[in-house]
Design a binder for these strands. Structure first.
Lengths: 218, 218
DNA sequence: GTCTATATGACGATAGAC
DNA sequence: GTCTATCGTCATATAGAC
């Protein structure tokens, strides 16, 4: 909160400081993923780095700040992966599919990062909510990119008229729930579930209720 | 975990003990709803009850146990409300609508209880995950009742063939996300959102893709 | 500029007096 | 049954060594 720390120009770091920060948040992500947020104390982070308790607080103002940085790092990775996937899609309608598959694919490919997010949402320590809230409040709402894609697809005539915000929120929630289930039950077929999800979404939002496959028409 | 506490027959309580327990979990729910889980310390619960720190721990083995009881109480209320709503529906297909509306309606009608659940999911203390997990692990998965309704509706011929589990999980996740949004943004129209959600679900799962209203046919 | 040592205070929990 | 210590662990604050 207070951050009474020294700054050079504005947000610049020493070489050693940048390296230390990297090391600290990297190890913090590992610790959270491996032992959960509850057991990831400041002392344990410091021990993993090999410095004293206070040394960590020297670089980050608080333990909260460390966790927030770690979460921020993870979220940025997801956002970048999705942005790249959307950029490759030729239409907004295809972008929606790309969005969903990129999100699930990235989460499946980076279980460590997923574990961090899950820990933030479901687990313990009095820092989780703040970390997620503060990390999120600096950015537009999570459903914004999806809602934009949906609105563009509607303008293209590929999707029927529907509240884009609610549709985006519902799809996001459905994705999260399906993915969470795949973590709870290893036997749950995530790939098949995502296909089912996209099938549901396709039917729910398609403009023409009487067709089997939109793309086969043109 | 350990629960090294005295038990009479098996899970029976004295009159005064039962009263104290009631008092404690009632005040705990209020405290969580009002100040959040992070600020609901053992000391504050004891203060609200008017006894010492350790007296609370005498009745419940740990602070965790208190929170778990409070959560259990809240969850039971939701489950009962939904069960009652489903029982009134004449078909499984209508039961699904009733399920969704009962869930959202109950949450909207009991903001205090909702706040407790939200606190468990998004907020702080190292007890939240355990409380939810343990409260949940004693019961079938959350999507089970919905999946049963979906399967029955499929047998009735009202829903197309789809993985009932994934469909139920997706719908549950969508409901949660929409409701969470309504808490974040008071201007968000929850009623309209639920209608949109049910419309999406109806289109996504209806057996005949070329009809406007299933019930008008027969 | 980087870090250690040490202190403080809040918390959950336990033991034992009454 | 309830309270009064008391303990261990946590995040954090301060002073100052190098």
């Amino acid at each position: 909160m207070s951050q009474t720390r020294r700054r050079r120009g504005d947000g610049e770091f020493t070489f050693t400081e940048a390296a230390r920060r990297e090391q600290i948040i990297g190890l913090t992500i590992d610790l959270i993923a491996e032992h959960g947020l509850a057991r990831t104390t400041l002392a344990r982070i410091a021990e993993a780095v090999g410095v004293s308790n206070a040394a960590v607080l020297y670089f980050f103002g608080s333990k909260n700040a460390v966790i927030q940085e770690a979460v921020q790092r993870v979220l940025t990775g997801v956002v970048d992966a999705i942005a790249a996937a959307i950029a490759e899609a030729s239409t907004a309608r295809e972008g929606i599919d790309a969005y969903v598959r990129a999100l699930v694919g990235h989460m499946a490919a980076h279980p460590t990062h997923v574990r961090v997010v899950i820990e933030m949402l479901t687990s313990d320590i009095p820092v989780a909510s703040e970390a997620l809230t503060e990390a999120g409040s600096r950015q537009p709402p999570r459903w914004r990119p999806l809602a934009d894609l949906i609105e563009r697809a509607q303008l293209d005539g590929d999707l029927r008229a529907l509240d884009a915000r609610t549709t985006a929120i519902a799809l996001s929630g459905a994705i999260d729930a399906v993915f969470a289930e795949s973590l709870t039950d290893p036997d749950y077929d995530l790939t098949a579930a995502v296909d089912t999800l996209l099938d549901l979404f396709d039917r729910a939002t398609s403009r023409d209720p009487c067709r089997q496959d939109d793309r086969a028409r043109e």
